[in-house]
Amino acid sequence: MASRRRMLLKVIILGDSGVGKTSLMNQYVNRKFSNQYKATIGADFLTKEIQFEDRLFTLQIWDTAGQERFQSLGVAFYRGADCCVLVHDVNVMKSFESLSNWREEFLIQASPSDPENFPFVVLGNKIDVDGGNSRVVSEKKAKAWCASKGNIPYFETSAKEGFNVEAAFECIAKNALKNEPEEEMYIPDTIDVARERQQKSSGCEC
């Protein structure tokens, strides 16, 4: 298996404007956080090399504009996605309520071959804000929504503090891998980089 060429896994991050999509991506790929990100216009992506067992993968993470009005661009960017990450801000109810819309819009525009089983991962970001006091979307509520949509894995994150970001993206990568056709590759039973990690989340039910 080690001789196979490196595989590209394409991940799309969606969610309302200002929920922290760019920050999550940068925290995961560059382990950096900045207060000075600009609103994303159009789309951009970062890549990260990851290794599962003896195989190397390139994770290509797409960051898109968060305003609904730019959704029509999605057609160009969502195509060929292996996993879709839905992000909300636990301090903003509207951003949580928008998840359904983002999910549906993604399925329409990316039109994956098996929409029923297409892998999503939900992130509740900004749990650090105000020590959690300004929080309006409870973990229970988010998990209930995830359960209703076919047991979507859910993670609570803080891009600012780097909390749970690594674990979330490991799950994202693993789900993206799972989306690949079986004959294309070997799916490992375990992912060593993810082991022994305490997660404040429902975890990745892969």
Binding site: S17, G18, Q36, Y37, K38, A39, Q67, V92, K94
Partner: peptide, 15 residues
């Protein structure tokens, strides 16, 4: 909502 969007964007414009 509109005000919220604007608040989010002005604090990340040419700071």
């Amino acid at each position: 909502e509109r005000r919220g969007l604007i608040e989010k964007d002005v604090v990340r414009t040419d700071r």
